[in-house]
Nucleic acid binder design. Structure first.
Length: 199
DNA sequence: TTCGGGATCGTCT
DNA sequence: GACGATCCCGAAC
């Protein structure tokens, strides 16, 4: 398998829901970090909308040092750090000045599996990338090194999907504080794919 | 400057 | 199913 094709800048300026469902789900997230190529099929993701969504870090369109990258033009990485130990990778969507992001929650490992096993310290394929913190570890993504970088470069990119997946919509995970937005069906995953964090 | 809590995960019961 | 780990952010003082 070859991951040389990339989604281009204009695609990332689409509406976040369209980008997530029509382009990102089923595509391959790829990294070449420390000389190692790793890649996985995107099987699960969540949409966050800065203007209205109480679960979004940038709600209500609040620009802070942490959320600044979300306000940039689509096509860069928003990577943040939580719980003192985990990084989380998001794709920034939409035009500059809007704060929309797509959290990648789960991958199906495709390439560089040995590297992923070393980084994750486990031989269990099913446990390499099935969670937002896990996949950052497996692909070598950190806030310090990758927040704000372009997804059309050579370190981190997304290779387009070749088939159209069947999609299931579900509530997002871990956002009980988000009041009426916690029940929105803004999490999307590939039907019957075993590499999702939760059903 | 302090302080509360987090878009999680691994370990333990 | 519960809990602790452990850094950073953002709000309040």
């Amino acid at each position: 398998m070859n991951f040389s094709q990339r989604l281009t800048a204009s695609i990332y300026n689409l509406d976040a829901f369209e980008l997530a469902q029509k382009h990102l789900l089923g595509a391959s997230l790829c990294s070449r970090i420390d000389g190692h190529l790793t890649a996985g099929k995107i099987t699960e993701l969540e949409v966050y909308i800065g203007s209205c969504d109480k679960a979004c870090h940038a709600y209500p369109n609040k620009l802070t040092p942490r959320t600044a990258t979300m306000f940039r033009a689509g096509g860069c990485a928003y990577v943040f750090f939580v719980y003192g130990m985990y990084n989380q990778f998001n794709v920034v969507a939409g035009p500059e000045g809007t704060a929309n992001a797509i959290l990648i929650r789960s991958l199906e490992p495709l390439s560089g599996i040995e590297t992923m096993c070393q980084r994750r310290k486990t031989p269990d394929i099913r446990n390499l990338t099935t969670g937002p913190g896990k996949l950052c570890q497996a692909l070598g993504i950190t806030r310090k090194e990758h927040d704000g970088i372009s997804l059309t470069g050579s370190e981190l990119w997304i290779s387009p999907r070749t088939e159209t997946p069947q999609i299931v919509a579900a509530p997002r995970i871990g956002i009980d504080y988000a009041e009426e937005y916690k029940d929105k069906l803004w999490r999307f995953y590939i039907k019957d794919n075993p590499f999702v964090s939760r059903r």
